[in-house]
Design a protein around this nucleic acid. Structure first.
Lengths: 203, 203
DNA sequence: CAGCTAACGGGACGGCTATCCCGTTAGCTG
DNA sequence: CAGCTAACGGGATAGCCGTCCCGTTAGCTG
């Protein structure tokens, strides 16, 4: 797709296009905070961004497209994983980072919108999956280090352990819609770690 | 609300109203399976149910309202929790029940629709929360029995343990959008149980 | 700095969705 | 079984959303 449009003519990645994209994504976030994903309309995003609505339709196609692009933008801003020296500290840092992210007004609504978009749009779903696959891989490193240090048994599935830490947080956020507090994060770490030490993450 | 409309005149719970509701909820499920929550329109539901679209708007108000009613209907059909004699068997039965439910064409799409509706509609969100609160409470009993039998340490938080079993399943379903297989369910049980035996579910 | 063209902007149009109004149906009540 | 009225049904209407067409702008290129 990308290849085809490139071969059709000269691409212009220059100032205006980038400026428009920045303005539109900024406006998208603002609209999400105010009206949520359900109330996100191409029209209002265009108006707030100060661009023609035709442009928004042409480049993003749908509200889900806007959110998807916002997601890939966030994916590029890779959050550096901590290295506190102990696996407990590292996992706690991970859980608290998730906790803060979903509770932050601006970022949290964007995350919720991503999940909402993914329920109706295949492209958004793929972007969401890729986003988390990348985050999980980044954090899996701390588990491997812990195994090398002897903190966790050999053969521990690093990806699964990282997933296990965040699963209860997202479960509360999306399914039971209970608040995601630091205490919840703490409990999640404690339980995942207990299971890991007992060897429950060895396939 | 309910009280007010009742006091205004005589309620007629009789045949026609109930018949209309059944037809509409049936049509809603069918439409959900075919087009998903995003493609659920009041108009088509009314047409498929063979009722006037004014009726659908008057009684349910929005697609989210339809799904919410569907959810309360499912909530009433309480699934009996198994009692296999061991906590491992009970939790496995629970996890497999969730696994089957989300993979079933008809029921699974309804669940997904419920979650999608909850992201945009407060009433749907409340109904979803109540639904799971009830299910979790029903299953918490098997944990208490296991504690009495000495299978799990005293003070184990039954509600949290039940939540911990389903959290990874829903995490995959909604967030990472990976398939929810029986093997995933098995792993989830194994890990939650390992943590519980280590006392990680004692507050 | 001048020409080319990718990308943007405005306005008009068609289709759909949600709402309103009022006539009709059918479940209660005596 | 006859009257009352809650609840349903159909049609008309207004507003919004998405698309299309074409003129305009501004970033590349030599």
């Amino acid at each position: 797709m990308e290849q085809l449009s490139r071969s059709a003519g000269t691409v212009r990645p220059g100032g205006r296009t980038a400026r428009v994209r920045a303005a539109v994504l900024e406006a998208t976030q603002d609209e999400l905070v105010e009206h949520g994903f359900h109330g996100l309309t191409m029209d209002q995003v265009a108006a707030r961004a100060g661009v023609g609505k035709t442009t928004v339709y042409r480049r993003w196609g749908s509200p889900a497209g806007l959110v998807t692009d916002l997601m890939t933008e966030l994916a590029d801003q890779s959050s550096p994983h901590a290295d506190t020296g102990s696996i407990e500290g590292d996992l706690r840092a991970n859980a608290l980072a998730v906790c803060e992210a979903v509770n932050d007004g601006r970022l949290g609504t964007t995350f919720q919108a991503m999940i909402a978009a993914a329920t109706s749009d295949r492209q958004a779903a793929n972007a969401l999956r890729d986003f988390y696959a990348r985050r999980i891989e980044e954090w899996a490193g701390v588990v491997d280090l812990a195994v090398q240090r002897g903190e966790l048994p050999k053969g521990t599935d690093a990806l699964e352990l990282i997933r296990a830490v965040s699963a209860p947080l997202y479960y509360r956020l999306v399914v039971t819609r209970e608040p995601v507090t630091p205490q919840v994060a703490e409990h999640s770490v404690r339980r995942a770690l207990a299971a890991a030490r007992a060897g429950a993450f060895i396939p």
